[in-house]
């Protein structure tokens, strides 16, 4: 399979929502671009099964975190763009705090270990 991740699958799954919300907080985007952006930013270490992104996006839309609209380009290509909503920003802040807490504890422990 092409996308065996270097990062543990549970961690990939747990980080999907904060990653999508963080990306969308920078501006609206569509499925393919989101996947490519994550791939590039993680130097190919974080790869999702492409199709599976959409149920996650749809669920987040249903939660009221993001909204979508179809846009047709000049070449006639149709893309569904997602953008973050107020509740999504709130959810992102909450998730950010949790990730930073975990990161803080790990960083502290590892620092002590190697001193």
């Amino acid at each position: 399979m092409h996308s065996i991740s270097m990062i543990d699958k549970e961690l990939v799954a747990a980080s999907a929502e904060p990653l999508i919300l963080s990306l969308l907080s920078k501006g609206e985007s569509y499925g393919y671009a989101i996947i490519q952006e994550i791939k590039t930013r993680s130097q190919d270490q974080l790869q999702w099964t492409d199709g599976m992104l959409y149920p996650v996006l749809h669920r987040m839309e249903r939660e009221g975190w993001i909204e979508s609209r179809w846009v047709e380009s000049e070449t006639g290509r149709k893309r569904k763009y997602y953008s973050i909503k107020k509740d999504g920003k709130k959810a992102l802040n909450e998730q950010r705090e949790q990730w930073l807490k975990v990161h803080g504890v790990l960083a502290q422990l590892w620092k002590e270990k190697y001193v």
Binding site: H2, S5, V12, A14, T49
Partner: peptide, 14 residues
């Protein structure tokens, strides 16, 4: 169920 929507299946081959 929300927690099981993507784990193990967001990554192909798992």
């Amino acid at each position: 169920m929300r927690a099981t929507i993507h784990p193990a299946r967001l990554v192909m081959g798992s």
